[in-house]
Amino acid sequence: MGPLDKYILKDDALEATENGFQLKFQTHWYRALPLSCMDFNLKIDGKEIDKNDLKIKANGNEYRYDELLELDKEWLFVLDRGILEVEQPIEKGKTYDIEFKYDLYIPYILVGPQANPLLASSVVHKNLICQ
């Protein structure tokens, strides 16, 4: 979207877990949106993660990627971070090349003849040290 894209992933965004890793992200759209209005693409060291391998966490709740479109009541507040969790072990302390495409479908700005939600897309490319 713009200059604030760099804040979507903070320096501590990548974290090792018991079974793999998680990536913490924050939206910089000025208004909270539900998870159903979001989509994600994640590459780690150039290799794309299969979306079906993503788990999405927000507000203490956990969902499969294929549930995303139904999550219109799970809102991510503008100051909170959502989490993508992947069961793929990575090494704590090692630096990884992360490419994160974060799509927001703005549900109240409808554009085009089909009145589709406006797509506000950001791509963040960062080297992150696994925490």
């Binding site: 159903s36 209005c37 219109d72 479908y105 549900p107 109240y108 009145a115 589709n116 939600p117």
Partner: peptide, 12 residues
């Protein structure tokens, strides 16, 4: 206030 007409893809 806002009206989030299209929160679910394909559902208006």
């Amino acid at each position: 206030m806002f009206l989030d007409y299209n929160k679910k893809k394909g559902h208006y």
